[in-house]
Simulated assay, not measured.
Amino acid sequence: MSRAARSKIDKYYEAVAVGLLVVDPTLDAQRIFQRAWANKLTKIWDRDVLLPAIVSLREDGVYYVLDGQHSNAVAKEVEGANFKRDCMIYTGLSRQQEAKLFLAANRDRKPVKPHDNFRVAITAGDEFSIRVEQEVKSCGLEIGSGTSVNRVGAVQALIAIGAKREGLIPKVLKSVEGAWGRDTTTWDNMMLRAVGMVIDKNWDIIKLDRLSKTLQKAPVGLWKGKAITLTTSGGGSNSRSVPLARQIIVEYNRGLRGGTPALVPVD
């Protein structure tokens, strides 16, 4: 088909075998394939919720992926090259127009807040999210978009703790409540993550009452301030929680007697 015949831009939906969808190595953004992100998609793979890829069918008859590179690679690995994926296919695009579509697909998406994502997962019947919510409710608390004395807003921390093992969330929440009561500072993201690390690592030997008394030695802000100074290159809540967890363990082990086992440091 001549360039003149293809000059008009058109678009339509079509199911295309993922083995036929390729990446243009000359498009800068598509050169960067992130294996870590693909691995994450593989773990949560669900063919029933795979969104359409945005594809340019060029003059050479080849389907070039403009948006959906990683999910397409995962689909090919998990389902095989003959697996057909729904695509929004454009024809007659210039390279500049392809680049604009790529930018629009990755720029014009408003990030979804963690709490909103969590609520949608509950509505979708996600078993893990439902378990997390039930464990929080078992403590007489709720998960909300903001933190209050009876509402935990640290959704990402709760998800991270829940992913470690079932039953860990109630132990974490009860330990911090035992230290500082029901206060807005008690349900701190960084603190919850750190306490979760401590309990998970020492599941069979930790004494939760002693842990609460250890935490009670200082307010949440002071614990966090010390941990931040020990964090290399700044770091986010998760990386800062590691030195915080180590501090908690040091204080917990201080002055142990009567055969009480010492806690094992977190990695």
Rank of each mutant, 00 (worst) to 15 (best):
I32N: 15
I32S: 15
F33S: 14
F33N: 02
Q34H: 12
Q34L: 15
R35T: 14
A36P: 02
W37N: 10
W37L: 10
A38H: 01
A38S: 09
K43I: 10
W45L: 02
D46V: 11
R47P: 10
D48S: 14
D48R: 15
V49E: 10
V49Q: 00
V49S: 13
L51F: 02
P52R: 06
P52L: 00
I54A: 04
E59H: 11
D60Y: 06
G61T: 00
V62M: 06
V62F: 04
V62N: 08
V62E: 11
Y63M: 13
Y63S: 08
Y64L: 13
V65Q: 02
V65Y: 03
L66E: 11
L66H: 05
G68M: 06
Q69L: 03
Q69T: 03
H70R: 10
H70A: 04
S71K: 13
S71I: 08
S71N: 12
V74N: 08
A75F: 12
K76P: 03
K76W: 10
E77A: 05
E77V: 12
V78D: 11
G80N: 07
K84V: 02
C87L: 00
G92F: 11
L93I: 02
L93H: 02
L93S: 00
R95V: 03
R95W: 13
R95T: 05
A99V: 08
A104P: 07
N106K: 13
N106S: 10
R107I: 01
K110C: 05
P114L: 08
D116T: 10
N117V: 03
N117Y: 01
F118R: 10
V120W: 05
I122S: 01
T123V: 07
T123L: 06
A124D: 08
G125T: 09
F128R: 08
S129N: 15
S129C: 04
V132H: 04
E133F: 06
Q134T: 01
E135S: 00
V136I: 14
L141C: 12
L141I: 00
E142L: 08
E142P: 01
E142N: 12
I143Y: 05
S145A: 10
G146P: 01
T147R: 15
T147I: 07
V149H: 05
N150C: 00
R151M: 13
V155K: 10
V155P: 09
V155E: 04
Q156N: 03
A157D: 00
A157Q: 05
I159A: 15
I161P: 07
I161M: 05
G162W: 02
G162F: 07
K164A: 05
K164V: 07
K164E: 09
